[in-house]
Design a protein around this nucleic acid. Sequence first.
DNA 1: TCGTAAACGAGACGGTACGTCCTGTCTTAAC
DNA 2: GTTAAGACAGGACGTACCGTCTCGTTTACGA
Lengths: 207, 207, 207, 207
Amino acid sequence: MTFGSATRSPTRPLDPARSRGGRPRSEHAHQAILSAARELLMAEGFAALRLEHVAARAGVGKATIYRRWASKEELAQELLTQLASPHIAVPNSDNTREELLAAVVNPMNAVTETDFGPVIRALLSQIATDPSLGDPFRASVVQARRAEIARVVERGIARGDLRPDADVDVATELLVGPVYFRLMFGGVLDLDFAERIVEAFMRGYAA
Amino acid sequence: MTFGSATRSPTRPLDPARSRGGRPRSEHAHQAILSAARELLMAEGFAALRLEHVAARAGVGKATIYRRWASKEELAQELLTQLASPHIAVPNSDNTREELLAAVVNPMNAVTETDFGPVIRALLSQIATDPSLGDPFRASVVQARRAEIARVVERGIARGDLRPDADVDVATELLVGPVYFRLMFGGVLDLDFAERIVEAFMRGYAA
Amino acid sequence: MTFGSATRSPTRPLDPARSRGGRPRSEHAHQAILSAARELLMAEGFAALRLEHVAARAGVGKATIYRRWASKEELAQELLTQLASPHIAVPNSDNTREELLAAVVNPMNAVTETDFGPVIRALLSQIATDPSLGDPFRASVVQARRAEIARVVERGIARGDLRPDADVDVATELLVGPVYFRLMFGGVLDLDFAERIVEAFMRGYAA
Amino acid sequence: MTFGSATRSPTRPLDPARSRGGRPRSEHAHQAILSAARELLMAEGFAALRLEHVAARAGVGKATIYRRWASKEELAQELLTQLASPHIAVPNSDNTREELLAAVVNPMNAVTETDFGPVIRALLSQIATDPSLGDPFRASVVQARRAEIARVVERGIARGDLRPDADVDVATELLVGPVYFRLMFGGVLDLDFAERIVEAFMRGYAA
DNA sequence: TCGTAAACGAGACGGTACGTCCTGTCTTAAC
DNA sequence: GTTAAGACAGGACGTACCGTCTCGTTTACGA
């Protein structure tokens, strides 16, 4: 699945009438801001993230940030979307248990081994309480993951590996919920954990 | 299970040598601060919580807050512990399915029908990233819930309702993880959802 | 002249009905407060004088200060009066030049060699702008000095040392004004300076 | 005499390397702050002067004040210098008594008829005790006045109106000391008083 | 090749909140 | 009924950032 297609960059559009003239926006500044923001968000958390510090670290004026994002939230959303995209897809492997394991291991690796982990940890509250950040996240990342897992379950049923009445509606919760539970509330996130989750799922829904 | 025993109030201690003299701390001010903080935390989120506003709403000087809690985080921790305590226990009902349902419904009702919901939403990021808030929360609330669910599973095994090899180590994740997943990432939290979660668990581990 | 007779202690009276009973006010605490206040006033100035620090240094509760003086100004006034009293009198020496010199040297020594110097320096603005401090000071200390100098001039005229039309009304200003001018605006305050002031006065008004 | 040349503005310098960029400091804000500070200093005195109130009255953020002056003292110093400057010069009038009278009447009018009066009253203590305010004041205003009066005396001697041994070293104290004495310690400040002071001086030092 | 126009780094602007300090009052137990 | 201790509501301190606004400068495009 291509994921980016569902995403809408929160970056502020240029004035549509600007095509006439003016200096173009600097792509270098753009990336420097995102990098600085990611580092500071991971180091300090969302509440303590200071756009003034982002600007300083990026070697950029504050206005250059506000020209692109209206708020800290918008900037965070872009970071989140950028980092979440690569960890959604579960390839068709013709092996249902393997695909289910991938559905658990993908998000687990994302949060344990990439910057997505610290970043989403820092943004959990914003996602859970601020629709301006949560709604786009749910509409893109969460929805993409739900769809991917639904496809895995359907393929499993089609192969005869899963019972036809396997509960697609809560499959994402059963497989990915435990990963986020431990992300927040502690507990090891390793392959053994992932396998136990898959084992419990398979016991319930194997044909 | 008594829960409070595991909790440590984060409230700043008085100087141990103070018993001799001085005006005692006002219990009224203490409660007014906690109420004001809860309301503002629910309304604005943790990042936008202003102790100055808490003080104003509580009709209290800022120093009266700082005398009790060293930071916004400590104050939030006390709020969280206060609100989480009542929703842990699962009574022994001699019916394993009923007890498992209670293990899912308890936290679900806590987050949907009490102030614990908005408060923990606001504090998820702090719990996940700030050990000063997360560690006490994990040591008290999360640990208590794990222990309670372990007891439910063990009673189920003892009654012969659950297989002896039912996976106690991930039972909390399987039962409560889905609830928190939907709390953060959307989806209805109702009795039907809870029953589907329990159904999946029972399918996997019923004797 | 005895000076104290003109002074009214600013110390708050005890409740007139106090003769009945209760613990008597501690004279020790009273003196400790005045000493602490004098030291801190000299070290920090009036604007930075903190009653909290006075209380701490005196080993006294804040209420013990407020029971005696209604404000920082009243406490300062008592300090000032206490320190100014000893430097007013000019003894009759049967030598007009000697007495005039004493009228200059007395205040000069008071400000250069006793705590009165730093204290009045710290309180000049209060005296000049705050009637609650300035009026009692003018009514006691300044008035006493004027009267003393008037007596010196009159004795000088009586002895035939000064012209009968010597200007009594500005004599204090001519003799003491230069001392305070240098106290504020710099310049040495020594015997030579005092003698030049007296010399100028004598040149103008000697018979 | 040009007076400003001796003065050093206490205003905080901009970073010398700032000429490159940044919004320039607002002259309008600068003057609004000085006006507000003058009004409040006159109304409340130095000790009760609140920079927060100055900022509010000037319609300015507190940082805008601190960007220019490091402290209440520095701000006061600028006020003082600004207000003192116009009252120093004594024009050559070819009439020694007239010039001496001007030397007394100038400061007298300054303190009775202009804002310099309330302002210096409020700052006397600071000038007398705080070198950071007193030293610049002595170096500029006081020194200028001394020099001006020395010139008046020298012109008087040159004209043959004053004795060649007239005491220049204490002339300022004799002429201006009485004015400040009454400013602090009470007594009318009118033309008659000024004439008596000049009369006493002339009696002593006329040729 | 030259204006025009927008973006750039810098930093001042009016504000809000921080966490600390102090004010003047009040409340306790001890004497 | 005063004492030392210390909590109380209130308010100012000086600092840090907010999001906006000027500056002088740089960079591209279209006339």
